[in-house]
């Protein structure tokens, strides 16, 4: 971290960022910030620009307009590695896990703890097992066996392992790409609780979702995107769940669709 970093500043902040792919403008003028111990929810329908925004935050894409600040310092990420070095980690939907590999091997994959030197350098299996068990316990997961293949965990638990891994490797800010979208009700609830746990430990979270109920359950701030533009960033006290749902669904569009849906329903149901 650089000396210029401002301790009081948000972990990550974007001011008027946008991104065009050639002539297609995928995102325009988005402003938002997330502080330590805070959950920023990014909401929007398909194609709203959510993925584009997180790619900018994660350093995978450079924005074509606007600025990005990490710890109050303006930054230009050349790659996700730059973001990682500043403690910004991204958990993508595929979670970057290897199903047949034991939980602890997945946890430390690519960053294994070793002992010994030269040709005798070997894995410190005991340390990695212990660390995996302890870190998962902090997330509220108790595994009977960190040697079981990670593919045998439930979807929610796998998500939690991926989050715990990001936190273990020093992430102060974790970006989650639709962590609940592929899950059933109870598994989604589990993941929401893991998110809350991480938040309570002082981690900043960017939580991408298109389910306003999930967002409302854990969010401190809400950024609503539609067709590449921001409909605003709201604090929890500035908006209600109903208003959020309305904004997301594009209230006016649904209202206009209402009569059409009614007619279709009555046509299908002549009796």
């Amino acid at each position: 971290m650089t000396g210029a970093a401002d301790a009081g500043a948000p972990l990550l902040e974007v001011r008027g960022v946008g991104k065009s792919y050639g002539s297609v403008s995928a995102l325009r003028g988005v402003t938002a910030s997330v502080a330590a111990g805070e959950v920023l929810c990014v909401l929007g329908d398909n194609g709203a620009g959510k993925s584009t925004l997180i790619k900018i935050l994660a350093g995978a894409h450079a924005p074509t307009e606007g600025t990005l600040l990490a710890h109050g310092v303006e930054r230009q990420f050349a790659s996700p590695r730059d973001a990682l070095a500043l403690g910004i980690a991204t958990v993508y939907q595929d979670l970057a896990l290897v199903p047949l590999l034991p939980v602890w091997r997945n946890f430390f994959l690519g960053a294994e703890i070793t002992v010994g030197r030269g040709p005798f350098r070997r894995l410190d299996v005991a340390a990695m097992r212990r660390a995996t068990r302890d870190d998962l316990a902090l997330m509220g997961i108790t595994l009977r066996d960190v040697d079981q293949p990670i593919g045998t965990l439930s979807g929610g638990e796998r998500q939690a392992v991926a989050i715990a891994r990001a936190v273990h490797f020093g992430a102060g800010l974790v970006i989650l790409d639709e962590p609940t979208s592929a899950l059933g009700v109870s598994q989604a609830a589990l993941v929401l609780r893991y998110i809350a746990r991480a938040r309570d430990r002082g981690i900043g979270i960017v939580f991408i979702t298109h389910n306003p109920h999930h967002a409302w359950a854990v969010g401190d701030r809400f950024l609503v995107l539609r067709r590449g533009t921001s409909l605003g960033e709201f604090g929890r006290d500035e908006i209600s769940l109903e208003a959020l749902t309305g904004l997301m669904a594009g209230g006016a569009e649904l209202d206009a669709l209402g009569p059409e849906l009614d007619r279709a329903a009555s046509a299908r149901d002549p009796a």
Binding site: Y92, V98, A111, R121, R122, L123
Partner: peptide, 27 residues
């Protein structure tokens, strides 16, 4: 020993199991 107790061995399992994931975590 290499397979079960070294980084290279860990990577062999990962590369064969899910190359995309392995690449993502820096293998």
């Amino acid at each position: 020993w290499v397979l079960l107790r070294t980084r290279f061995g860990n990577w062999v399992f990962a590369v064969g199991g899910q190359a995309a994931s392995a690449r993502q975590v820096g293998v």
